[in-house]
Nucleic acid binder design. Structure first.
Lengths: 192, 192
DNA sequence: ATAGGCATGTAAGCAGTTACATGATTTA
DNA sequence: TAAATCATGTAACTGCTTACATGCCTAT
């Protein structure tokens, strides 16, 4: 019945980890949900409204003191069914789009300095994310070692997806650094 | 002046490597242009038309024997300027969206078998891409060793972006395999 | 013959981005 | 008192996807 609705399933999956408001989800999705999805806040509010209308999530008002009230959401039975159906559906190829690599691809024929600066910046961001993800891993597995946790832990889904995020960020960090160095050396050699 | 126009720059960058037709570009972009961008064929034809109208690429009819004629495109001076301006513009964060990781994130709460199958499949695809990319690297650097090529080679942009593709595919392959194994062992332990 | 690769598009629809809009509370 | 964080949306636009459409040539 439901065809693409790309975001839905990502939101449902994120809500498996706990009750979140649109605002909280926005922060999670801005970091990249352990790097498998990105979404702007506006889209999340919209999607949550739709998901609630379809009965896949249930909203609950939380009154806070000192802060505006918020609505937090939980996955319903129907939502779980939707996720199960989605998981059984053939996966489409991962979507990756990166400005920065396009720039590097053209790096020979344009001024390299700004590209190098962007590579450095991206490397720092990746390093920061990696740290964050590694802390998340520690938090998730508690006292257990990784192997043991993966064998015996109760909920390992988030751990596994976070592992993917770690791998990705580590590679981005290293590639950016290596590439920046390479371009810098060539620029230095030519300029002087 | 030109704001996002996401695809444009990716197409321009790809055309730096040589003259290509829409059809040829479609194949390149289906693999992922060394994995930094993906685009459907239809979009490419559209984008090429626009790029030509804007004078950023120049089309040339190529009559072939035994095959339909095709139009191949080259980046113009104006196109290079556009790319240069683009490279100097701050990069937006990379966009990554993957169904499969979403499914893994929810893997505890749904039937794991189809997810495991998809992981295996994806691992094979990644392994195939990795091979392809490694061959591309060899082709690009010719007789030279990597380090020497990166220091002295004439055009290293495509090499650097291909390195990014290699890193990515290698990690995807390994993560998929590891994750499939983990889920399988748990499923096996429970089922029997 | 027919399946598959080469070759190029149009049209409809939806997903996602950008810009606009509001308002309370805490911290600097 | 200004900036940052919390909190939630609407509206317009456009980029991208999906489906539809056509036709030639080669290899099996």
């Amino acid at each position: 019945m439901t065809k693409a609705m790309a975001l839905r399933h990502a939101v449902l999956a994120a809500l498996l980890d706990g009750e979140y408001s649109g605002y909280q989800l926005a922060k999670i999705f801005n970091v990249g949900v352990a790097n498998f999805w990105y979404a702007a806040p506006q889209q999340l509010y919209l999607e949550l409204t739709k998901l609630e209308a379809d009965g896949l999530v249930a909203g609950r008002e939380v009154v806070q003191r000192g802060r505006p009230s918020k609505r937090v959401f939980t996955v319903t039975e129907a939502g779980l069914d939707e996720l199960a159906a989605f998981a059984a559906t053939p996966a489409k190829p991962l979507l990756l789009r990166d400005d920065l690599v396009v720039k590097v691809h053209a790096a020979d024929l344009v001024e390299p300095a700004p590209v190098i600066a962007q590579l450095r910046e991206r490397a720092e961001e990746a390093a920061a994310k990696l740290l964050l993800f590694e802390q998340t891993l520690l938090r998730l597995r508690g006292d257990l070692g990784e192997e043991e946790f993966l064998r015996t832990g109760e909920r390992i889904g988030p751990y596994l997806s976070c592992l993917a995020g770690c791998r990705l960020e580590r590679e981005i960090r290293d590639w950016c650094r290596q590439t920046a160095r390479t371009l810098e050396e060539r620029a230095g050699g030519k300029a002087r």
